[in-house]
Amino acid sequence: GSVVKEKKEKALIEVRPYVEYYNELKALVSKISSSVNDLEEAIVVLREEEKKASEPFKTDIRILLDFLES
C-alpha cells in the first residue's frame, strides 16, 4: 500500500520536468491508484490508458511508465 503510493508519488515528482500534462497525469495516477492493489496492476492499467491516449499525453504516460518500471 504505502510503498506503492510512495513509488508513484516519487515517480510523479521525477517526471514532472519532462511531461507536458502534469496535472492530467497526476489525476490519472490518482484515479488508477484507487482501483488497483499494487504497482504491477497500476502499470498494466497505465499501459491500457497509453494505448487510448493521443499525443502528447501518450508520451507523458510513457515517460511515467519508464520511471515506474525502472
Rank of each mutant, 00 (worst) to 15 (best):
1 G>V: 14
1 G>E: 12
1 G>Y: 01
1 G>C: 15
1 G>R: 01
2 S>P: 07
2 S>Y: 02
2 S>L: 08
3 V>W: 07
3 V>N: 11
3 V>Y: 06
3 V>D: 13
3 V>F: 08
4 V>E: 14
4 V>L: 14
4 V>K: 04
4 V>H: 13
4 V>T: 08
5 K>C: 15
5 K>M: 14
5 K>P: 06
5 K>N: 14
5 K>R: 08
5 K>D: 14
6 E>F: 11
6 E>L: 05
6 E>Q: 06
6 E>T: 08
7 K>G: 04
7 K>A: 15
7 K>F: 15
7 K>N: 06
7 K>Y: 15
7 K>T: 14
8 K>Q: 15
8 K>W: 15
9 E>N: 05
9 E>K: 06
9 E>M: 07
10 K>S: 11
10 K>F: 12
11 A>W: 15
11 A>Y: 09
11 A>P: 03
11 A>D: 05
12 L>I: 04
12 L>D: 04
12 L>V: 02
12 L>P: 05
13 I>K: 12
13 I>T: 12
13 I>M: 10
13 I>W: 05
14 E>F: 09
14 E>G: 07
14 E>N: 09
14 E>H: 14
14 E>D: 06
15 V>C: 07
16 R>Y: 08
16 R>L: 06
16 R>V: 06
16 R>S: 04
16 R>H: 05
16 R>T: 02
17 P>L: 07
17 P>F: 05
17 P>I: 07
17 P>C: 07
17 P>K: 08
17 P>W: 05
18 Y>T: 04
18 Y>V: 03
18 Y>M: 05
18 Y>I: 05
19 V>S: 01
19 V>L: 03
19 V>Y: 02
19 V>K: 01
19 V>G: 02
19 V>P: 01
20 E>W: 12
20 E>D: 04
20 E>H: 15
20 E>T: 15
20 E>L: 14
21 Y>G: 05
21 Y>W: 05
21 Y>V: 02
21 Y>A: 08
21 Y>H: 10
21 Y>C: 15
21 Y>D: 12
21 Y>Q: 09
22 Y>A: 02
23 N>G: 06
23 N>L: 11
24 E>T: 04
24 E>Y: 02
24 E>P: 01
24 E>V: 05
24 E>N: 03
25 L>F: 01
25 L>I: 04
25 L>N: 00
25 L>Q: 00
25 L>W: 02
25 L>P: 00
26 K>R: 10
26 K>E: 15
26 K>C: 07
26 K>F: 08
26 K>I: 10
27 A>W: 07
27 A>T: 09
27 A>Y: 07
27 A>L: 11
28 L>R: 00
29 V>F: 14
29 V>T: 04
29 V>N: 01
30 S>C: 15
30 S>P: 01
30 S>G: 10
30 S>H: 12
31 K>M: 11
31 K>I: 09
31 K>P: 01
31 K>W: 09
31 K>C: 06
32 I>Q: 02
32 I>N: 02
32 I>H: 03
33 S>Y: 12
33 S>K: 03
33 S>L: 11
33 S>E: 09
33 S>N: 06
34 S>K: 07
34 S>P: 03
34 S>Q: 14
34 S>C: 05
35 S>R: 11
35 S>V: 13
35 S>D: 06
35 S>E: 12
35 S>Y: 12
35 S>F: 14
36 V>A: 07
36 V>E: 04
36 V>S: 07
36 V>R: 03
36 V>K: 03
36 V>N: 05
36 V>C: 06
37 N>R: 10
37 N>L: 05
37 N>C: 08
37 N>M: 06
37 N>E: 09
37 N>Y: 07
37 N>S: 11
38 D>C: 07
38 D>I: 06
38 D>H: 09
38 D>Y: 06
38 D>N: 11
39 L>Y: 08
39 L>W: 14
39 L>V: 09
39 L>I: 09
39 L>P: 09
39 L>T: 13
40 E>N: 12
40 E>P: 08
40 E>Y: 08
40 E>L: 07
40 E>D: 12
40 E>V: 11
41 E>Y: 04
41 E>I: 05
41 E>R: 05
42 A>S: 09
42 A>T: 14
42 A>L: 15
42 A>V: 15
43 I>T: 05
43 I>P: 00
43 I>W: 06
43 I>N: 02
43 I>G: 03
43 I>H: 03
43 I>C: 12
43 I>Y: 08
43 I>R: 04
43 I>M: 09
43 I>S: 04
44 V>N: 12
44 V>L: 11
44 V>S: 07
45 V>Q: 14
45 V>L: 14
45 V>K: 12
45 V>R: 13
45 V>M: 14
45 V>I: 10
46 L>T: 01
46 L>P: 00
46 L>W: 02
46 L>E: 00
46 L>V: 01
46 L>Q: 00
46 L>K: 00
47 R>V: 08
47 R>H: 12
47 R>N: 08
47 R>S: 08
48 E>Q: 12
48 E>L: 13
48 E>W: 10
48 E>A: 10
48 E>N: 12
48 E>F: 11
49 E>L: 03
49 E>M: 03
49 E>D: 03
49 E>P: 00
49 E>F: 07
50 E>R: 10
50 E>S: 08
50 E>D: 02
50 E>K: 12
50 E>N: 07
50 E>H: 11
50 E>W: 14
50 E>M: 14
50 E>Q: 13
51 K>R: 13
52 K>L: 11
52 K>H: 10
52 K>Q: 11
52 K>R: 12
52 K>Y: 07
52 K>C: 09
53 A>F: 06
53 A>Y: 08
53 A>G: 02
53 A>N: 11
53 A>K: 04
54 S>D: 11
54 S>N: 10
54 S>K: 07
54 S>Y: 08
55 E>L: 13
55 E>M: 12
55 E>C: 11
55 E>H: 10
56 P>G: 10
56 P>A: 06
56 P>D: 03
57 F>E: 01
57 F>M: 02
57 F>K: 02
57 F>T: 02
57 F>I: 03
57 F>V: 03
58 K>N: 05
58 K>R: 12
58 K>A: 12
58 K>Q: 07
58 K>S: 13
58 K>I: 02
59 T>G: 12
59 T>K: 14
59 T>H: 13
59 T>C: 12
59 T>S: 13
60 D>F: 05
60 D>K: 01
60 D>A: 05
61 I>H: 00
61 I>W: 01
61 I>G: 00
61 I>N: 00
61 I>D: 00
61 I>K: 00
61 I>P: 00
61 I>L: 04
62 R>L: 09
62 R>H: 13
62 R>Q: 10
62 R>F: 05
62 R>S: 11
63 I>H: 04
63 I>V: 09
63 I>F: 07
63 I>Q: 02
64 L>R: 00
64 L>K: 00
64 L>A: 02
64 L>T: 02
64 L>G: 00
65 L>H: 01
65 L>F: 02
65 L>K: 03
65 L>N: 02
65 L>A: 12
65 L>D: 00
66 D>K: 09
66 D>P: 01
66 D>E: 11
66 D>H: 14
66 D>C: 14
66 D>F: 14
66 D>L: 13
66 D>G: 10
67 F>S: 04
67 F>Y: 14
67 F>H: 14
67 F>D: 02
67 F>Q: 06
68 L>D: 00
68 L>H: 00
68 L>C: 15
68 L>P: 00
69 E>C: 11
69 E>S: 12
69 E>R: 10
69 E>N: 11
69 E>Y: 08
70 S>H: 14
70 S>I: 09
70 S>F: 12
